[in-house]
């Protein structure tokens, strides 16, 4: 297509329009990648330690992320919320010892990782949101007698056996 054409013929309007289209599509792809990516935010009402200071769990709290339905958090409750995109807001409502309802200002935050955890006690204590949120790394608890790698073998074999078996599928 390009063979035997001078530079002028190649770099005409059409070339730039096409280039522009490709760039727009790539930009769109990148945007979609970040915009559409689903991340999980764990809202956590456990006692925690931030920057060397301990915070006790709240006796009762209600948290609402973006426009999603608010949910109540009793002590030692942790819930995962699937979220799309990076920047979100969280609104926390709690009550003091006299059962007065305290509504904290909505806080905007960015998710640091695919799986993040935000600490309600920290927020209630008025700490900056950056300090309360961190990547969530699930603790691996080794149970004696159960090897972590053991489970893979069986499934793999099953998967490969299945490959050519059931060819009829719902159309």
């Amino acid at each position: 297509m390009i063979k035997g054409k001078s530079a002028k013929e190649i770099f005409d309007i059409r070339f730039f329009v096409r280039l522009g289209c490709i760039l727009i599509i790539i930009a769109l792809a990148i945007f979609l990648y970040f915009y559409g990516k689903q991340r999980t935010l764990y809202v956590d009402n456990w006692s925690t330690e931030i920057n060397g200071v301990s915070y006790r769990y709240a006796d009762w709290a209600e948290a609402q992320v973006d426009d999603l339905a608010a949910s109540e958090y009793n002590p030692r409750v942790r819930r995962g919320i699937p979220l799309r995109g990076r920047t979100h807001t969280i609104t926390v409502t709690t009550e003091d010892d006299n059962f007065n309802l305290i509504e904290l200002d909505p806080v905007e935050f960015r998710l640091p990782a695919d799986q993040s955890i935000i600490s309600l006690p920290g927020l209630i204590a008025g700490l900056p949101v950056e300090d309360c949120i961190k990547e969530f790394i699930p603790e691996v608890v080794e149970i004696p007698g159960v090897s972590a790698t053991d489970t893979s073998g069986g499934e793999e074999a099953a998967a490969e056996e299945d490959l050519f078996g059931d060819m009829s599928m719902d159309f």
Partner: peptide
């Protein structure tokens, strides 16, 4: 883990 219509796009 890209979800919804943006994912399909």
């Amino acid at each position: 883990n890209i979800v919804g219509i943006p994912g399909l796009l």
